[in-house]
Design a protein around this nucleic acid. Structure first.
Lengths: 141, 141
DNA sequence: GATAGAAATGAGAATCTTGATCATCTGAGC
DNA sequence: GCTCAGATGATCAAGATTCTCATTTCTATC
């Protein structure tokens, strides 16, 4: 099933790559650090090195299979690319990440870039705040 | 002149701090890495350690004198805080950074955050593209 | 299926950025 | 000028990510 994605990207179908794809697909949070993926691999009994995780994720990114995000903090997080572009809201307290897409913002960005003489290629927008989730440690009792 | 800012922030007026402020004020690019500031200090004959540069910049950030930005790449860049919030456009080719502020985007961000139940505290927006500067290596001849 | 060659992997070293430690030095007030 | 808290510099340390290279695993071929 997913092997087709790998082949399409010119990547050999190997066990580490399939396992990493599986984890990205099945994870609840959908936004994982390389370390987190590595730990899940260990937990499920796979003997896959951290270097391989980083290498594979970088290749996946180049192949357009995953996106790499730099949220606050020093670790990059990876998410499966499922077609649509979107931006992110991050809770400062519990780290939860939600996604959104807003055509108004997208349009204004294009207009602003044009106004500055830039041919816009990409953008990174992250909102930081305090969420209202019942599990969020910041939430008032 | 600037010594007042330092005093106001509860920081002793020392030579390293003044020199670093000077560099931030006089630099053309206005967006400098800690390394770049360190090199400028060395070039001007100052014997100031890299650790001090990082420490001072962190203190300046805490005092609201500078902003720390995480653009693509692994080094943070620092810019003098001159009052107004703004976002950034970065040229993928020459690294040039321009600033902009757009009330429409700001408003939409607040609305989106509210819609997701987030109390927005901060945001990071960076546009990446190719600029049209005559010195930009990407520019068509 | 067995096999060869290319590509991928794993372990650990290496790198890069940034923060911590600690002995020494310096600035502000007296 | 003197004292002492605070600041500095040199070095070490930590965390994330990449590199190296010998070994292993796919894939295409016979």
């Amino acid at each position: 099933m997913e092997t087709s994605n790998l082949k399409k990207a010119g990547l050999k179908v190997t066990l580490p790559r399939m396992k990493i794809l599986e984890i990205l697909e099945s994870s609840e949070t959908r936004h994982l650090t390389a370390e987190a993926i590595y730990r899940e691999l260990l937990d499920s009994g796979e003997e896959i090195g951290l270097a391989t995780v980083y290498r594979v994720l970088t290749q996946f990114e180049a192949a357009g299979l995953v996106c790499r995000l730099h949220l606050e903090g020093n670790q990059a997080v990876f998410e499966l690319e499922r077609g649509g572009h979107h931006d992110h809201i991050v809770c400062n307290q519990c780290g939860r990440v939600e996604e959104f897409f807003d055509e108004t913002i997208e349009r204004r960005q294009r207009e602003i870039a044009q106004h500055h003489g830039f041919a816009i290629k990409d953008h990174a927008l992250v909102l930081y705040g305090d969420c209202n989730d019942s599990a969020c440690p910041h939430r008032p009792a």
